[in-house]
Design a protein around this nucleic acid. Structure first.
Lengths: 143, 143
DNA sequence: ATAGTATTGTTTGTACACATACATTGAATG
DNA sequence: CATTCAATGTATGTGTACAAACAATACTAT
């Protein structure tokens, strides 16, 4: 028995469900972070810089899973708002070292609680077991 | 004991993991659908039209979970390639009825198998139970 | 050392995603 | 009937996401 087109239900495909889930999570983030005007990606960069400050732009990109081209734009917007600095590595002229400014660090402190709210609201329909199950499975399919 | 910034690990947040997973799924889609030059969203529209042809653009948007503004662009690109038609509803001058063309239908037939491959490869690290678990959980957090 | 290669970052172009503002039409209410 | 309101689609602007082409610097092997 061969598979045919009737087997294919869009709403049952992971990719489709991932897009939907991601869009909903982004919406919750947007509403929760409204006052800060930070995007999820901008916050991800700041939060990662708080974990490991003074990183190469390239390495930072790998840590937050963003393209060099994409990260470049994100960094620029964060620089314009004074949250981040970009300095040349004295040892390697080609490298740029990204670091949090005082302003960025201050802003960030008020954001961690918001970040927790976003995660909590995104997962609110799941019980405790399902919450950690979902995280585990997402990690598994992201390599 | 109050929570502080050290509690917040970016890599443990759903939103971050959802973005990563979605990006990986998109990459797999891109590679698999290389020859067709269809994007995930364009294929989603075609696949949905195969399920329910002759829909209002607005309703189609709700079915594939896209903004009116976003869908408008997707539809335009599908029209340019002759996969889709957009006709005015005679009863409601304001509405546009979207339908698959012969060309679109033909193209689509060869795509279902590719779509299955994408889903399969995206989930390849999971066992059977985990696969359906993930789908269930994603549905739960997408309302 | 020199040549070739890998690393790192920018630029440009296409495609979502969505907010906001706008235009038009159909329906509902007084 | 007229005014208001909801539904539907368009236009524009900002922000990802990524490919491809480019540029410049470090590294490696001969």
């Amino acid at each position: 028995m061969n598979s045919n087109s009737t087997d294919y239900v869009l709403a049952d495909q992971v990719g489709f469900l991932l897009r939907r889930a991601h869009q909903r999570a982004s919406l919750i983030f947007k509403n929760t972070f409204e006052d800060t005007s930070l995007t999820p990606q901008q916050f991800a960069v700041l939060a990662k810089l708080h974990e490991v400050n003074n990183v190469t732009q390239n390495k930072l990109g790998r840590l937050v899973d963003m393209d060099p081209a994409t990260l470049q734009g994100v960094i620029q917007r964060l620089m314009q708002r004074g949250f981040v600095l970009r300095n040349q590595d004295p040892q390697h002229k080609r490298r740029l070292i990204i670091s949090l400014t005082e302003t960025g660090c201050e802003m960030l402190k008020n954001c961690f609680e918001l970040g927790r709210q976003v995660s909590s609201e995104t997962l609110q329909t799941l019980d405790k077991t399902d919450k950690s199950e979902l995280l585990r499975l997402l990690r598994l399919i992201s390599e």
